[in-house]
Design a protein around this nucleic acid. Structure first.
Length: 160
DNA sequence: GCCAACGTTGGC
DNA sequence: GCCAACGTTGGC
C-alpha cells in the first residue's frame, strides 16, 4: 500500500467532477518523473486530490483510491487534444493514464498555507521549493496527518 | 554529452 | 499576468 498526492486544476477537473463520475481517468500527464510515479501505483493505493492554481482554494480537496493499472493515455494519440504527442504510436506509447475511484470530498479544502504551517509535514515533497510534479509520493505518516487535518476541519477544530 | 533556449507549472 | 524553478529540446 502506497500513498500519493496528485494535482489537478479544478477548472479543468475537480473533486466534484470525480465525485459525479465515481471513477475517473487521470490523464494528460506529460512529465516523465510524474509518469514514472504513476507506473508505481497499484490498485487500492490511496491518493489525495490536490487542487492547484485554484485561487483561494489551493490545497487538498479529497480522497480517492487507485482503481486500475496504468494504460496508454488515449489523449496522446488524439490530434485534437492539447495532450496530443506526435512522437507516440500505439506500438510505442509514451504516456500513461490511470483510473481513480472517488472516496470522499473533504468538507473544506486543507489549504496550502495550512500544509506549509504544519511542522509534521515539513519535508513533504509537495512543499519543496520549486516542486511542480503533478504526481508525488507521500509517506503513510504524511498521508494520515493530512486526512486528520481534514477531519479536524470537519469538526471545526482548526482552519477557522 | 554540454548547455542555451524554450516551454510549462503553479504560487502569488 | 508575472516570474522563479526546472524539465525538455536541439544545435554543436
Amino acid at each position: 500500500m502506497q500513498y500519493w498526492l496528485v494535482k489537478s486544476e479544478p477548472e479543468t477537473y475537480s473533486i466534484s467532477d470525480l465525485k459525479r463520475e465515481g471513477v475517473g481517468r487521470w490523464d494528460g500527464i506529460r512529465n516523465y518523473q510524474a509518469r514514472n510515479f504513476l507506473r508505481q501505483m497499484k490498485i487500492g493505493d490511496a491518493a489525495l486530490f490536490y487542487h492547484s492554481s485554484a485561487g483561494q482554494g489551493i490545497g487538498v480537496a479529497g480522497l480517492m483510491t487507485v482503481a486500475s493499472m496504468t494504460y496508454p493515455d488515449p489523449l496522446q494519440f488524439n490530434t485534437k487534444s492539447p495532450y496530443y504527442d506526435p512522437r507516440a504510436t500505439s506500438a510505442k506509447p509514451l504516456w500513461d493514464a490511470i483510473d481513480m475511484q472517488f472516496v470522499e470530498a473533504f468538507p473544506r479544502v486543507v489549504t496550502l498555507p495550512t500544509l506549509k504551517a504544519d511542522a509534521a509535514l515539513a519535508g513533504m515533497r509537495l512543499l519543496m521549493p520549486g516542486n511542480r510534479l503533478s504526481v508525488v509520493p507521500l509517506t503513510k505518516r504524511q498521508f494520515e496527518h493530512i486526512v486528520r487535518l481534514a477531519q479536524s476541519v470537519r469538526k471545526g477544530k482548526a482552519n477557522g
